[in-house]
Each structure stands twice: as structure tokens, then as C-alpha cells.
Write a protein that binds this DNA or RNA. Structure first.
Lengths: 121, 121
DNA sequence: CGCATACTTAACCATGTGCTTAACTATGTG
DNA sequence: CACATAGTTAAGCACATGGTTAAGTATGCG
């Protein structure tokens, strides 16, 4: 049920501001390696390595034509991230739902103990 | 406009499977450090360090009462992640929208050149 | 007080990450 | 062919990460 090893790679890819900048640039459309590197304050090999991390995470796909490599964004992996977040939120909300019914079923004579009971559900 | 330095910490916190497991556990409700550590195949100090990473990212908040530290999940940061993802998707969709209107405005006599023109928008 | 419990801190170690510069490999162009 | 262009690879370096064990600090209980 939990084969979320790919999430390691996606989250790790996105935890670096340079790589998020690359992703943001690629949402505007495909670009070559040097086009992507141009605005960034680092060497071309550095950008190349960041792109490898992004490709490893499947956030970016690329193909080389002639001597130019064109990189494109792959949104599928952002869906995977969103699915994980949604699943956590779902569990969280379900817990709060059970909490409400539990509190509603309580005798209303113990208002002072609510804060303690609340978190034990 | 882009003060997303917090995203570094959140994505970095979530890129480790142990820490995601901790987050998943905490969606079920608050827990102490040893409760969180019990099912994990590592020492207590290791878990303690993971929790520090999660707290640094603001995904987890904790308070110590007596000698027990109780950890709770903080969903706000998941919203921040989701906002970033939504923003990327929005740019992406807007680009595809422009692409559609551009293609619709094209003279229909050049079907073979579509694949080339497509990505230059 | 004496001892267990629940962390917490410190020191250490192996690997991984994010750069750098230098050198190498195509691939177009005049 | 000569030369520029666009990547790519390799080596090295500083620092971060994820674990370990050992020792230290409160706190609660009999």
C-alpha cells in the first residue's frame, strides 16, 4: 500500500531553491541547459547536476537533439506529492470528525476537562 | 513576492521516509517521543534528531510537560507546499491555454509543423 | 533518598550534497 | 579543416545528513 519511495526523490529534488527555480522556469515552457543556466549564479556543470537530480525524480524529462538538450517539465510527480498531502489531510480530518462525535456524546457537565480529553481520541 | 525559504525546510523534512512516517503517525493524534520511536528501527536519539528537523520545518510543534514531550502535527506548512504546487500548475495551465488559442488562430494548412511550433510558445 | 523513566546532549563516523575548475566530447559553421 | 558552441565528465573540497554509542539531566515514584 505504501510504495512511496519515489516521494523521497521528489521531495529531495524540491528542497533546493535552485532546483525549484528550474522547475518554475520550466513551467513557462521547455528550455535548453544553457538557457536554464544563464540566469543562475553558478557554473554550467552545477546546473547540469541539478538537472540530473530533477530527472532522477521524474519531475523533468529531457532529450538531446544535435548538441542541444531540451528539458521539459513532467507534472505527474507533482500529483504524487499532492496525493500524499491529501491522504495526510484526510486522516487528520477523519480524526477531528471522530473527535466531534465523541465530544457531542459527552455529558455536558464536564467543560473543564475538555482540553485534556480532546487530544486522547 | 517569492519568500519561499520555508519551503526548503519543509521539502527537506519530508524527503526522508522516517520523517514522513512520523508525520503519518502524528496525523492519528499527538504522541510522545518514545511512542513515536517505538515502531522505528533506530535508536531514540536518532528519532529525536528527526523530530528536531520536523520542528525546524514547522511541520511539528511540541511541548514538554513533566518529563514527557508531546508532539503534534501542524498542517499549516502542508498548505504552503500545496500553494507552491498550485502556483506551478496554474502557470503551466495558463501556458497551455495560450497554446490552444495560438493553435486555433493558426491557418489550418500547416498540420505537419504543429509539433515544432507547439513548444515555442 | 534511591532508582527508574524519558528524554537530551555530545562525540564520532560514513555518506551524500552542492559547488568548483579543468579537461573532454560531440556537433554545427565558415 | 579550423573553430566556436553546447554539453558532459572527472576530481576535489567544504559542509550537511543520518545514523551510532555513551554520558548527562530532569522528573516521578516507593
Amino acid at each position: 500500500m505504501v510504495k512511496y519511495a519515489e516521494l523521497d526523490l521528489v521531495f529531495q529534488a524540491l528542497c533546493d531553491p535552485t532546483r525549484r527555480a528550474l522547475v518554475e522556469q520550466l513551467t513557462l515552457g521547455p528550455a535548453s541547459v544553457s538557457e536554464l543556466a544563464a540566469p543562475l549564479p553558478m557554473s554550467l556543470p552545477a546546473v547540469h547536476q541539478h538537472l540530473k537530480v530533477l530527472e532522477r525524480s521524474a519531475l523533468v524529462r529531457s532529450e538531446k537533439v544535435g548538441r542541444v538538450r531540451t528539458c521539459r517539465l513532467e507534472l505527474t510527480m507533482l500529483d504524487t506529492v499532492q496525493d500524499w498531502i491529501d491522504a495526510r489531510r484526510a486522516t487528520w480530518e477523519r480524526r477531528l470528525g471522530r473527535l466531534d462525535t465523541y465530544l457531542a456524546a459527552l455529558p455536558p457537565e464536564t467543560p473543564a476537562s475538555i482540553n485534556q480529553e480532546k487530544e486522547q481520541v
